[in-house]
Amino acid sequence: MSSFDKESELIYKCMIQMTNYTGEKAYVAVSLINPQGNYEKTMYIQGDDKEWFPDLKNWWGFTSRNDENLDAISGATIGNGERNIISLSFKPSQIDTGYKVRFESAVENQEYYLVDAEVDLNTATLRNKVEGKGYIRYIRMVPNR
């Protein structure tokens, strides 16, 4: 799953609340973005049918050049008004240093959102509710204690 030292990881529960929209269920790529604004790693994929992964255009461009085991971090799609709770883990050095978690989304035959939502990894705002811009209504993260 991760090359991090398990004892030094910070684990957060993350709720993804979807908007009420019509159409198929959404594919969402959850990625760690480094301080330079580049993809560092895939944290989770909401959607397990690899046929639709290329619809997440920017994420797909990143992941198709890397050797990530996506089967280990993928789950079922959710749609219209549904919610999903996932676990995300971070190194302490990624908090308060400019890292972000990006939520990229797409729905078959509908719009694609490069940044549907983005959460800054800083202690002052990490627990704040972050509004989505597309299929995601909001994101909320809390420490897993």
Rank of each mutant, 00 (worst) to 15 (best):
S93M: 00
N69D: 15
K41E: 07
K13M: 15
S64H: 09
N58D: 11
T77F: 07
V30N: 02
A29K: 13
N58F: 10
K41Q: 05
Q36E: 14
I33G: 01
P54C: 06
L70A: 04
R83G: 14
T22F: 12
A26L: 02
A76Y: 05
R83V: 02
Q94E: 14
E51A: 11
K41H: 02
D48E: 12
W59D: 03
D96H: 15
L88A: 10
A76D: 06
Y39E: 03
L88S: 05
I33F: 13
N34W: 08
I11E: 08
K13D: 15
T63V: 15
M18N: 05
D49F: 04
R65C: 09
A72F: 11
L10Q: 03
E68H: 08
Y21F: 06
T42R: 04
S31F: 08
R83D: 13
T97S: 05
P35R: 10
A76Q: 11
Q17N: 12
Q36C: 01
T42C: 05
W60P: 00
G23T: 09
N80M: 11
E40S: 01
I16T: 00
R83L: 11
E40G: 01
S31L: 08
T63F: 07
F62A: 07
T97W: 12
N34M: 12
T77E: 07
E51V: 03
I16Y: 00
K50R: 11
N58E: 13
L32A: 09
P35W: 14
D49K: 02
D71Y: 05
A26K: 03
T22V: 03
K13Y: 15
I16A: 04
G61H: 05
Q94C: 06
L10N: 11
F53D: 14
Q36T: 13
D48G: 02
N69G: 13
K57R: 09
T19V: 09
N66V: 01
M15P: 10
G23D: 13
Y39C: 06
Q17I: 13
Y21R: 00
D49H: 14
I11T: 14
G79R: 06
L32P: 00
V30G: 04
L70I: 08
W59N: 01
L10W: 08
G61F: 12
L32D: 01
L10A: 14
G23L: 15
A26D: 01
E68A: 03
G79K: 00
I16D: 03
K91Q: 10
K91L: 15
